[in-house]
């Protein structure tokens, strides 16, 4: 059965949470990971919508460190007060 955007977003959020501090994940990493996890139950468009939902809701943020990544909101070490 096809996964909903909410289910995919939740799975992505968990992937990002598990990778925090270990590896920064790009949108392409998340999409590939989700397709590996759910197979035919998902497609690239639903992954795109799930990322949009995560970022629009503020649960995740885009960051830039030489390339763009998706991470949990956090206080950066480099940021000045």
């Amino acid at each position: 059965m096809a996964k909903t955007v909410e289910e995919v977003a939740e799975a992505m959020y968990n992937m990002i949470k598990d990778a925090t501090g270990l590896k920064k994940l790009k949108a392409t990493d998340l999409t590939k990971g989700i397709i590996e996890m759910f197979g035919d139950e998902v497609d690239k468009q639903i992954c795109k919508d799930a990322i949009k939902q995560l970022v629009n809701s503020g649960r995740c943020v885009y960051t830039y460190f030489g390339g763009s990544f998706i991470e949990l909101p956090h206080k950066e070490g480099a940021a000045n007060d």
Binding site: N56, G58, V61, Y62, T63, Y64, E71, P73, E76, A79
Partner: peptide, 16 residues
């Protein structure tokens, strides 16, 4: 340079 700097929902347009 870089980091979490941007506006809500966007991943580009602001260079920290």
């Amino acid at each position: 340079h870089g980091g979490i700097v941007g506006v809500m929902g966007y991943g580009g347009g602001v260079i920290g």
